[in-house]
Design a binder for these strands. Sequence first.
DNA 1: CATCCACTGGAATACCGGGTTC
DNA 2: GAACCCGGTATTCCAGTGGATG
Length: 418
Amino acid sequence: MGALSKNLFEKFTYSSSIVKGQRHALEPGFVPDRLPHREEEAEQLAEILSPSLKNFKPSNIIIFGKPGVGKTSVVKFVEAEISKAIQSRLDVKIKLIDVNCGIVDNPYGVLVAVGDGLLESWEEKLPFTGWPLDKLYSTVLDKIKSFGGIAIIILDEIDRLVKKNGDSVLYQLLRINEVTNEGRVCILGISNDLRFTEYLDPRVKSRLIEETMVFNPYNASQIYDILRDRSLYAGIADSIDESAMKTCAALAAQEHGDARRAIDMLRIAVELTEKSNELRILDDTIYEAKKKLERDVVVETVSTLPLHSKLLLFSISLIDEIKNGVSSTMGEFYDLYEKVAERMSIGSLTQRRVADIIGELTNLGLIDSKVQSFGRYGRTTTVSLNYDSSKIKDILLSDELLSQLKDVKPMQKSLPDS
DNA sequence: CATCCACTGGAATACCGGGTTC
DNA sequence: GAACCCGGTATTCCAGTGGATG
């Protein structure tokens, strides 16, 4: 250890020569009080929700749009405005209830979230498991009644909820307005998927979707404006090259106009610049940040995989190494996976389950897979790695449990049979 | 057009955390 | 407090299905 510093945290709290404003303006979850290129949408949403300020139930609404196009930001912004507007008014009763269906994606959880959102301070929270659904539903209903105002339920990533569980919860929530008049429910859904309504029962669909808003992806110049704005919040505008900002916007625009990604890239560029004690953010820094961001995403997704997914991925990358990138078949990697599992003395999963895990890994973008028919010789899924097998293996082997597989070498023949 | 391999949808089972009943 | 109810999640079990090649 070096010389004792004045304070352990000193080096983490230093005031940066680059960031002269609010650092968290570049972090995910920051809700700005300006929304460049989303002013109209914010206004439109406010208009749709405005009846609530006169104690009328606003229309239910679904907001569609790809990731990073400002859906959540606009909603959060409008939520904050509503809160401000009703702050000193006793004549309106509005509750805003946020539910992130990416996290709570089951009917029980959603009902609990709604119930807890209506909780008075002295009341106890609902149990997160245990109750029969109908009892849970009727207590939530009672809470709405006793609240007596308008509950605006914001279901972020509503498409996930519906894809996984169907529309039963939505049906129940919508039904509240028919069962009682002593409290009303308004649903505001946010969806990444334009087609999720296909999963809905027509009756639910027509009641849920009274209004629709579609957020289009940002183009490069709009992302540029957003970055410019954020850099003002963060106080980094002086330290960033004009062309670097343009590059950052252009790169993000290429990928579905995702502003979140652009901001992530900018944040990482700032961090890189600070680390290297540079004073200006240049084009190169942005490219470097882009690479780091991609690398980080892979490390993050791979290292948080469940054990069996990791073992499977390990087997796939071994085979990839043997066959030099040529895709492998279910038979091949399943056999190897079984042996790897045996070596770690844990039971292996069924082929059925493995097929599903392959699907999950494919959705994560780690591998590519497709079913291929070889006619007389049957049908199978073939998979290929999307990343360098040695990189994937490195990440996997850094897992404590998998480290015992370090010595497993790819060989031409598979491991000796039992 | 039969055949082969395993894909695939769905029902069944096991287990978990937690409430409820007696 | 043991035994049972409840919903969620992970996995297995089963049987029906797909599709190009030989």
